[in-house]
Design a protein around this nucleic acid. Sequence first.
DNA 1: CATACTGTTATATAATTATATAACAGTATA
DNA 2: TATACTGTTATATAATTATATAACAGTATG
Lengths: 126, 126
Amino acid sequence: MVKMLRKVDKHSGIPAYIQIGNMIKAEIILGNLPQGAQLPPVRDLQYIFDVNINTVLKALDKLKNEGFIEAEQGVGYFVKKDISVEEEIIKTVKDCIQKIKALGIDFYTIMLIFEEVWKNESSPDA
Amino acid sequence: MVKMLRKVDKHSGIPAYIQIGNMIKAEIILGNLPQGAQLPPVRDLQYIFDVNINTVLKALDKLKNEGFIEAEQGVGYFVKKDISVEEEIIKTVKDCIQKIKALGIDFYTIMLIFEEVWKNESSPDA
DNA sequence: CATACTGTTATATAATTATATAACAGTATA
DNA sequence: TATACTGTTATATAATTATATAACAGTATG
């Protein structure tokens, strides 16, 4: 259930609580954490992400405010709304990634390119 | 020359100097800032990105250390190595983005999915 | 050589992010 | 009800990020 969750990259410059939130959010979007699923206890997440408990709580609090999860005192955190993405989109992304990897380009570079192309080339969006 | 450079998103949680560095780096990678090109003066970049001059300098210093740009005292900052990406890659990314946008998915979500799929589905990488 | 541009360095201050640690409080169950 | 789990709150401290501001230094040009 939690095997997708990785340690935080402490040298990326991206705040840990943002990285943690993004990882959990992505698992929810991808359906790996389905609606109603219970997250690991905060004292486990501490070790999973290799951060302080307060950093875990900050990440979870953000997700709670965004409506992705909810907390039950003394019980646990649970996935709230299921916004899982259709297979079609996953497949499109996987195909795209395969092509890009075949071209020998690394993840970081492709993220930069992706963002620039998205924000400059097409319809007005985030 | 600088029309691709946007203001920093101060509510994203991503440090401004990281965002700035990424934007400039992406322009270099995409070839919009070709080898030898001069960047706008730091006192202009201040207003372009809407941050303090020290934040600009921090971003530029990082890019300098990474070998993307170099500084000439009293003259300016210049693009050092040209690591522009081949048209093929840009085309692949554009096609991918078109498909994804057609599916009505927003940028932020797709970035999360992209990262998860990249890091979990394929060959060991960043 | 004076001026106006360029990058550079420095100091002080504030806000944000992260840690360490402890205690408190709700829930489930033997 | 005692115990062991769960989330919650709080305090102190440190490191990082960002701002405001000023002064210094190199370069180009009239």
